[in-house]
Simulated assay, not measured.
Amino acid sequence: MLATPIGNRADITFRALHLLDLADAVACEDTRHTAALLQAYGLHKPLIAAHEHNEREAAQAVIERLRQGQRVAYVSDAGTPGLSDPGARLVAEARAAGFRCVPLPGASALTALLSVAGEVAGEGRFRFAGFLPPKGAERERALQAIAASPEACALLEAPHRIEALAVSLAAHLGPRAVTVGRELTKQFEEVDTVAAAALPGWLAAHPQRTRGEFALLVHALAPGPASEGEVDAEALRVLDTLLEELPLKSAVKLAARLTGRPRNALYEAALARKPQA
């Protein structure tokens, strides 16, 4: 599983070039894109199309080559395979057939954005949501979950949906900070941190800002000035929901993580709601 550049071709690793040179074949998301990439490095290899629509069938072609003792590299169109890109099913099938899957780390839009986001409140913790559902109730539930969680959340988005996402994040997150990375590692790269409410205006400020690939980080909520004993209505709602399904201590622990409220205060609230515990 071999990571390729997300834009700047100089970001390929020496190890990746060495393994591509050794490979007997390259399985890839798009044969045209990968052929051009290999040609840029002076490499020519047999290509196997393995994308989201044929990954299970393509896995069998890869496994047959592995059974013959061949080396097969898998690459997605950009970045690290398996992260909002095809590759996970291929790995599962190859492992089930008894073959080893080796990671070759490299470029990733996710880690590139996190490294320059300056996220402090989350203390390094974040949730990776990838591409949100494109529409409907499922998308709305995903947005509500991001807004309700105090943890940082990383998102990816395509250019034709970035304006709609910006409007949705503005409506759900308001003043919460969002770091947006556009065209990371490419000529017109932009990284900026703005309030979610300002995202639509940020995109509209320059016509080219709606072009290219996007990675976004919704920043974690900083601890508020609430006193140790204060538990707000939203935290109580979360606690009540968890108490319906979990033992008291587990519900309190998870509620504290989800809401950022003090565990001791949540524990007292839980005892008041569930005195038999």
Rank of each mutant, 00 (worst) to 15 (best):
P46A: 13
S84C: 10
T111W: 00
Y74R: 09
G98S: 12
T210M: 05
L156M: 15
G124Q: 11
L156W: 00
D85R: 04
A112H: 03
S76M: 10
L266M: 11
G7Y: 05
L143S: 06
A222V: 09
E228L: 14
G136W: 11
P103I: 10
E55C: 06
E190Y: 01
L246H: 08
F131Y: 13
L38T: 04
A121T: 09
A49Q: 09
R89A: 13
R89D: 06
E245V: 13
V194Y: 02
E230N: 01
H33L: 02
P103Y: 07
L199I: 09
L254Y: 01
A233M: 13
L66A: 06
A220G: 15
G87H: 04
L217N: 02
K249R: 14
A107C: 09
A10F: 03
G130E: 09
T179M: 06
A107N: 00
A35H: 13
L242F: 05
V238D: 00
A27Y: 07
Q68D: 12
A196K: 09
Y74K: 08
E140S: 11
L242Y: 05
E138R: 15
R32G: 02
L199P: 01
R263Q: 04
H33D: 00
Y74Q: 08
E140N: 09
T241H: 12
A256S: 15
L37A: 04
L254P: 08
V102W: 10
A204D: 10
A152I: 09
A27I: 03
A204S: 12
P200A: 12
A272T: 12
M1P: 12
N264K: 13
R139L: 13
T179E: 05
E157A: 07
E268H: 12
A215V: 12
A129Y: 15
L22M: 14
A35F: 05
A222W: 02
A109Y: 01
V102N: 02
H219T: 04
L248I: 09
E230W: 11
G69I: 07
R67C: 08
E183M: 04
E245L: 14
F131S: 04
